[in-house]
Design a protein around this nucleic acid. Structure first.
Lengths: 140, 140
DNA sequence: CCCAAATTCATCCTTTCGGGTGACGGATTT
DNA sequence: AAATCCGTCACCCGAAAGGATGAATTTGGG
């Protein structure tokens, strides 16, 4: 941010110098202040647009792909870390056996976690869990 | 957009007039061009930022909520209307029986549709179908 | 240290899901 | 008319998922 401000001032100074340079170089001394202001206004409006896009670009891509879960909902429903992991893998379309292999636990353990998870989410099927978890911002 | 350009030019003219006014009103005739340019640059940079945000705000909200399915993918995979309906209900967490009740058909019909759908989506489970359909923009 | 919560695993049973196959009527295309 | 696609329905079978319950182990916090 400090860098941006510095570059901003630098470009401003450069523009002024450039205008001065052309003013004396081409002996066009009758350039009115209005012309100066117009040029500067247009250029810096464009710069402002660019800066604005630059600053908000992160926010745009943060909306969907970069996702942070709502931990308040997580604690309110009493969902543990392991259950959250299972939920995440369920939402990725994995079967209980695949989840068990990925977490290095028994399939029975996964079934226990998913059962507890469904109770806490108040659903009875994993597809419903996906739907509800998405609404609660527990998964992307 | 034309309105925006008009207002832009108008504000530019107003600013110039304002500066001129203060210049003669306060008898501060030695205001350098650099000061003018700096003020104008700062103000119009802010204006540019505002415009940039204004123009991109619509795109931001358009990313997720407003959804239109990709019919090209739909036809490329040869997914029929009925299969698409089943897909939509599957993504909402409904069981085959519930889908059958909602579509007024037999559960066997739903199973046939879902099986064909899974083949066309190249998946083997409904949770995978949800995952993939979302990636293909077939469901919100 | 101790207790509560979390994690782990198991068994039994029922329901749901998925794959495969076959069939029939209707609409469209060839 | 024949072929093709869609939608419908049925049956069978195995796999996966879900519910209920019990229990052992580990872990984190008071």
């Amino acid at each position: 941010m400090r860098k941006t401000i510095f570059l901003y001032g630098l470009s401003l100074a450069a523009l002024v110098a450039l205008l001065k340079f052309f003013e004396y170089r081409l002996f066009v001394r009758d350039l009115s202040v209005e012309v100066y202001i117009s040029v500067v206004a247009i250029l810096f409006t464009a710069l402002g647009v660019w800066i604005g896009l630059r600053l908000t670009r992160k926010k745009i891509v943060l909306i969907s792909p970069d996702f942070q879960l709502d931990t308040s909902v997580l604690s309110r429903l009493g969902i543990s870390k392991r259950e959250q992991e299972v939920l995440d893998l369920i939402s990725k379309g994995l079967s209980n056996q695949e989840i068990a292999d990925k977490l290095f636990v028994s399939i029975n353990t996964v079934k226990t976690h998913s059962s507890n998870l469904f109770q806490k989410l108040d659903v009875s099927r994993r597809t419903q869990a996906i739907q509800k978890a998405k609404a609660l911002r527990l998964i992307p």
